[in-house]
Design a protein around this nucleic acid. Structure first.
Lengths: 234, 234
DNA sequence: TTTTAAATCCAACAAAAGTCACAGAAGTAT
DNA sequence: ATACTTCTGTGACTTTTGTTGGATTTAAAA
């Protein structure tokens, strides 16, 4: 168990190359919390919940718009971190986090994190690099939402499952259309139609209830150019 | 002139609270460049152009989608910084930058920046905070693009001119509909229609060619709830 | 002023996305 | 199996956004 936790810490890019004693400090100061499936971990707008690490289970990060529609920003499995921004600036949480399955989470408070940052330059350096990475990621999403059609976003989702865990991938998706809709920022019916479109066009393929990638090349064209590639026929 | 430049540096949050000699180093290692109106400062995808500071003039940050449509991410006037992310991770520039008017820009290369960061913890600390801030900003924009209608985004643009310089505001806009469209991620005609809609509904008001806010309260409702507030009549 | 280029207005149309309603299929619990 | 819930499929329809094209207006240049 302890061994398992040690591995956990070392996989986290924020904590790479730290002095052993710093890592010890981090371990000592962090708290472990368990969440039942469906339980809220923290909510948007509340005061800073600190730095979170998914040790076990699946965590959904999402926002809600005024009309009540959801936008799933990410689905996180071990070992991932979240709320890094609020953890470092101490302001309100920028989104909601819920445990999708039962989940184990390690938490480091804003205060502890600040103390650690002050005494460990490597941590600070890592933090800058990771925030830069996060920034690039957000910018790409921003462009996706600004410019890409739903079928194109859907193609992209199938192509790089990485962002949203390996739940959706060439190996079939376990995500419901409702969940996909929340990721793409649209509604269930629209996802259903887009899915049907890609199936009819032969970019995806269905076996029973599971969907696979049938034509990666054309799926990539759709994802990159936002244009449905010419069909084989006609 | 030198005095002016000193003021410039002190207004930049990245450089707050630095040791005087660090600030000296930064000044020594940065280069000044002048750009004619319309000149490209750097392009998306090119190798890291470094940390940029707008000292004079107006700079547009934008991306282009596959179909050639533009998305203006920001319009920067003195004293603002840009390309902070690439400057720190050394990877490709994530967007394009052009001088809208003639512009004076100070540039600090990735290499110089890394050297400075290694020797000045305050700079590193500032950087983390500023990147966190940038992240929150991107997340808000992401939600805007995901969920808000064009009229709602337009209302928001009029309300907090801050982001896009004071070119648009209660004081009238100097932005063309084409430029507004690029900011909102849509087309000129759509902006025209949305503008007409807000004028007809009495949220905005026109004097000659210039547009003012006529009803800030209802404009805020539109911006926040994404719903056109009830008209006075009916 | 005259000329020219840029920006705007507007209507009609096309396409994409969102909504509603309901039927059927698959999965779970009893 | 049965009952129940959740997920999916689909058509009809509305709303929003995007596109096209031409008529005006405005601002800047000659």
């Amino acid at each position: 168990m302890t061994k398992c936790v040690m591995d956990t810490w070392q996989q986290i890019p924020y904590f790479a190359k730290l002095k052993p004693e710093s890592l010890e400090h981090i371990k000592e100061q962090s708290h472990r919390r368990m969440f039942a499936a469906g339980a809220t971990i923290f909510s948007e707008g509340e005061r800073c919940a600190g730095f979170h690490i998914v040790v076990d289970g699946l965590v959904r990060i999402y926002r809600v718009n005024p009309e009540g529609r959801l936008h799933t920003l990410s689905l996180l499995r071990p070992v991932s971190t979240f709320n890094e921004v609020a953890a470092v600036d101490g302001r309100h949480n920028p989104f909601n986090a819920v445990a999708v399955t039962q989940a184990e989470v390690m938490i480091l408070s804003h205060k502890c994190l600040m103390g650690l940052l002050a005494n460990e330059p490597s941590l600070l350096e890592n933090y800058v690099q990771q925030l830069a990475h996060l920034n690039r990621d957000y910018l790409e999403r921003l462009e996706d939402m600004t410019f890409r059609s739903i079928p194109s976003r859907l193609a992209k989702l199938f192509l790089h499952e990485t962002t949203y865990a390996d739940q959706i991938s060439e190996t079939p998706t376990k995500l419901t259309q409702e969940e996909i809709a929340a990721i793409l920022g649209t509604t269930r019916e629209v996802v259903g139609r887009a899915l049907r479109g890609l199936l009819n066009a032969g970019l995806l393929r269905k076996q029973g209830r599971q969907i696979f990638i049938a034509d990666r090349t054309r799926l990539e064209i759709l994802a990159e150019t936002n244009t449905m590639p010419t069909c084989i026929e006609r």
